[in-house]
């Protein structure tokens, strides 16, 4: 919160009025913006607090006609749900870790060093983003079947990592390139090797980029669907996205539990975000997305 405000400058005569009003107007605007992004999930929350039949009752009613308070207890007391949650946490954290570890050296090196194939590499990275996993899932299955890794966390962690690598490399590449070479040179004069320079100086300078890449990868891995669906056979190894389909089938609908479970599934992401959000703003550094 200690960020210097960068509000565009206003004409002088309007400034005084605005100064008095600003502390009141801005939070209200903030509330409106928050509502604009939250309202569907408020609908979702209300749907979790009514019996399933009430969700699809005609005519619609915004508030539940009949409140049901047990949904979250049902969901959180369900062993299947807890297993799915566990899988999602493990997979998302591990995928994010792999991406960060793999992307940093690649992004740094391509940002700082000219070498044969540099442009080709960056292009390859971009192109990997263009394949829809839906179209590749058969090949992915074949690969992990050949490697005897079907139904293992390893398989979906590696897949998530590979498909999210491009974003991380791109974002970090931009941040690394925007850090002036002089800083690095100073470090090198002090005798730091390239790796040490990267770890000690560049990483802290590129922190907003790192945070962006982390959030991005975590969310993408958290919400991955089609690959996990295909690779994870055991019910307790399915991630949440795949597992919660069970709540609503063609023959039986538990909308309340589906939405209750979905709300729970959002929480870890928001918590993670809340924990690292302040770094997104980059207190001392100023990296540019490039």
């Amino acid at each position: 919160m200690s960020v210097v405000t960068k509000a565009p400058v206003r004409p002088r005569d309007a400034t005084v009025g605005w100064r008095t009003l600003r502390p009141y107007v801005m939070p209200v605007l903030g509330l409106l913006v928050a509502f604009a992004f939250l309202w569907p999930y408020l609908v979702m929350l209300l749907n979790a607090f009514r019996p399933s039949a009430d969700v699809v009752q005609t005519p619609a009613s915004i508030l539940p006609r009949e409140w049901k308070w047990t949904t979250f207890a049902e969901v959180l007391g369900d062993e299947r749900f807890l297993a799915w949650l566990r899988t999602s946490v493990v997979v998302a954290l591990a995928s994010t870790a792999v991406v960060v570890v793999v992307a940093i050296p690649a992004a740094y090196f391509t940002a700082r060093v000219r070498f044969p194939g540099r442009v080709a590499f960056l292009f390859l990275v971009l192109v990997t983003q263009m394949f829809s996993p839906t179209s590749l899932v058969v090949g992915i299955y074949r690969e992990f079947f050949t490697l005897n890794l079907v139904n293992t966390y390893m398989a979906i962690i590696l897949t998530n990592a590979a498909f999210n690598l491009a974003f991380a490399i791109w974002i970090l590449h931009g941040f690394f390139s925007s850090i002036p070479k002089e800083i690095e040179e100073a470090a090198e004069l002090d005798g730091c090797g390239r790796l040490a320079t990267l770890l000690r100086i560049m990483l802290s300078l590129a922190r907003p980029g790192l945070v962006t890449a982390t959030i991005f990868t975590f969310i993408a891995a958290w919400n991955e669907y089609v690959v996990a669906l295909t690779l994870m056979l055991d019910d307790d190894r399915k991630p949440l996205t795949v597992g919660i389909n069970s709540y609503v089938t063609g023959y039986e609908q538990n909308w309340d539990q589906l939405f209750g479970a979905s709300i729970v599934a959002i929480v870890p992401v928001v918590v993670l975000f809340a924990l690292i959000e302040k770094h997104l703003v980059g207190g001392l550094t100023s990296g540019a997305v490039k």
């Binding site: 899932v137 055991d234 019910d235 069970s246």
Partner: peptide
Amino acid sequence: VQIVSWDDIDQQ
């Protein structure tokens, strides 16, 4: 045993 939703079983 692998349980698959009806929506996805053709693909699986």
